[in-house]
């Protein structure tokens, strides 16, 4: 019993046993605002001594999400956003139902969650087409555009 007890040296009065450990975050499920599975917590990052956010991993791709964008519970990490990075790999159709290809790159405003454009490629050898956000009609399961592309 005595082994599990954590003795505290701190100006704060909170019992360290009641605080969450960074280790317990690892592997926790991360869910976007719209209920989509974003990945699992891979790492916890600090800026200096301050908690900065989490690194989420899904299929070998990692995304850092700042602490301002999520709340943590025992079961999952709930995001207050739908990360635009999860658009990568989605299929793109134009307004006429023509398959344009898949999203290969996301262009954002700096590191924010604001989408500016997506780069779409039909196959490995074709050149990528840049599609600005203003031309996107739906971006949920896949992307549907407002215009017809020739």
């Amino acid at each position: 019993m005595l082994k599990n007890k954590i003795r505290s040296i701190s100006s704060g009065k909170k019992d360290p046993a009641l605080m969450e450990s960074a280790r317990s975050y690892i592997g926790r499920k991360v869910v976007s605002k719209s209920g989509n599975f974003v990945g699992k917590v891979y790492d916890v990052r600090f800026s200096g001594s301050v908690f900065a956010g989490i690194v989420v991993m899904k299929k070998l791709s990692k995304v850092f999400i700042g602490k301002e964008f999520f709340s943590v519970s025992r079961d999952a990490v709930m995001l207050s956003i739908n990360p635009v990075t999860s658009l990568e790999g989605k299929q793109v159709f134009d307004a006429d139902g023509k398959r344009m290809g898949k999203v290969t790159e996301i262009i954002r405003k700096g590191n924010s969650n604001t989408l500016e454009a997506v780069m779409v490629k039909k196959n490995l050898y074709s050149s990528a087409v840049k599609i600005p956000k203003s031309e996107i009609s739906v971006s949920k399961k896949n992307i549907i555009l407002k215009k017809v592309y020739r």
Binding site: D75, M78, K98
Partner: peptide
């Protein structure tokens, strides 16, 4: 509409939601 490569529907079928996980606001299943 009947598109070039696809057929676009005008609605989401309600049956599609069957079997989805239901989470509370804290992510509990």
């Amino acid at each position: 509409n009947f598109g070039v490569d696809t057929v676009f529907l005008s609605r989401v079928p309600a049956d599609k939601f069957k079997g989805l996980d239901v989470l509370d606001s804290k992510g509990k299943l």
